[in-house]
Design a protein around this nucleic acid. Structure first.
Ligand SMILES: [Mn+2]
Ligand SMILES: [Mn+2]
Ligand SMILES: [Zn+2]
Ligand SMILES: [Zn+2]
Lengths: 138, 138
DNA sequence: AATATTATGCAACAACGTTGCATTTAATGT
DNA sequence: ACATTAAATGCAACGTTGTTGCATAATATT
């Protein structure tokens, strides 16, 4: 509870119940969330627009990052302190085709790639789709 | 021209002008295209819905594949004969932040990743964002 | 408590995508 | 060439997703 306020203040954001609740949702569910997921999780508490704006703000401040997906964008917490100035993500995302959940594999780094002459890489997104441990066990 | 018909027949599709034009667009522009891009390129020739359906059909038949993007899905030609039964893609996509174009780097394969126990990978999508050779030269 | 600044809700709108159905078109066999 | 069959198209209607402007409410600061 108090930790939420700390995180928000740490990123120079005012504490509002919507921001607390959205942040809280990201912390509790551990998988990546879409705008729709949040709308579902938070019920009628907040206007759709406010959730869009909260996501945008969190993105800009480095609280969350985008997770690419073949059926729509999702978002997940930035684990290691990203800031407004610098987002740094080189970890892998895994989407389970069975349970549908997408997770950050924080300690799995994207391997280096030797690009052809002239390409200047800046950021990387690797999504692996398949079956997650829970659904393999089934 | 005749080649287009060949490709369509090869994937057991009827030849229609819309399909020819969409396929042609993918071949001429070499970068990945969104539904909107196609709508723009083809003008008022075809109904929006028909283009959606054409994309869906091409996807199913293995003529095009999805290209993940942080601002919306795009599509690109499958170079090596994919079919309805089997899509096989392990190449890298590069999106230029300056010109905005996304391209398949067909001969750059996604490196192997040692996933933790229990994860069963099935498909891979790697998007690298940065500056493309043309825009670097500038 | 008063003030300045920021966030929210609401309404209206635009963009994107889907479905059902009547009509047109393409492929096939005669 | 023509009739038949199956598939593709256009249109209308609708649903979802995302954006913008503005008045109101809430937060942080003095
Ligand atoms: Mn992540
Ligand atoms: Mn590709
Ligand atoms: Zn799963
Ligand atoms: Zn470029």
């Amino acid at each position: 509870m108090e930790q939420l306020r700390e995180t928000l203040k740490g990123h120079h954001l005012r504490t509002t119940t919507c921001r607390e609740d959205v942040l809280s949702a990201f912390i509790n569910k551990k998988n990546a969330l879409s705008h729709g997921d949040l709308e579902g999780a938070l019920g009628e508490s907040y206007d759709r627009v406010t959730i869009y704006r909260t996501l945008k703000t969190f993105l800009e401040k480095g609280i969350i990052h985008k997770v690419l997906d073949d059926e729509g964008l999702r978002y997940a917490l930035c684990s290691h302190q990203c800031s407004e100035e610098k987002h740094q993500h080189d970890h892998i995302h895994f989407k389970c085709s069975i349970c549908g959940k997408t997770n950050c594999l924080e300690n799995l780094h994207i391997p280096n790639v030797a690009l052809p002459q002239g390409y200047q890489p800046a950021s990387f997104n690797l999504l692996i789709q398949g079956t997650c441990p829970e659904c393999v066990a089934e």
